[in-house]
């Protein structure tokens, strides 16, 4: 049980950057927000580094499908995080430590709700 997980969140400039205020309202200890120009910029290394540095979870916030200014950046990011979660799951890293959210500039409230649900699931897992 982890009452105050350390979460690193990548936010894309097209949507996530507009809802950073909502993300920061997540009711728990430490959340670090990293802005990227597009979610597709996030490479595999970017997911592993935070975990190596002690983060409990890595979240990605990207635009909705068919709303990405760079056409398929969000789709690439989603595939990448799912693939990584699957591969790392094989060596014992639980999948609750990764999450991918679709959001738009005016979807802050909904995002906060989804993230809160994910965080509560995370808290119940033995890391």
């Amino acid at each position: 049980m982890n009452s105050s997980p350390k979460i690193v969140t990548f936010c894309c400039a097209g949507s996530g950057a507009y809802v950073v205020d909502y993300i920061k309202k997540l009711d728990q200890g430490q959340i670090e927000v990293i802005e990227v120009p597009c979610a597709g910029r996030i490479e595999a290394y970017s997911f592993l580094e935070p975990l190596r540095n002690g983060a409990d979870a890595v979240f990605v916030v990207a635009c909705h499908e068919e709303n990405c200014e760079h056409l398929w950046g969000n789709v690439r990011a989603k595939k990448r995080i799912e693939y990584l979660a699957a591969k790392l799951g094989m060596i014992g890293v639980v999948k609750e430590r990764f999450a991918f959210f679709n959001v738009s500039t005016n979807g802050g409230v909904r995002l906060l709700k989804e993230m809160t649900e994910k965080v509560s699931k995370l808290k119940q897992v033995n890391l």
């Binding site: 068919e66 709303n67 679709n102 738009s104 005016n106």
Partner: peptide
Amino acid sequence: CKASHVCNKCFAC
């Protein structure tokens, strides 16, 4: 935002 599994092109964003 009126997105479902994809963006539904409402332009509100």
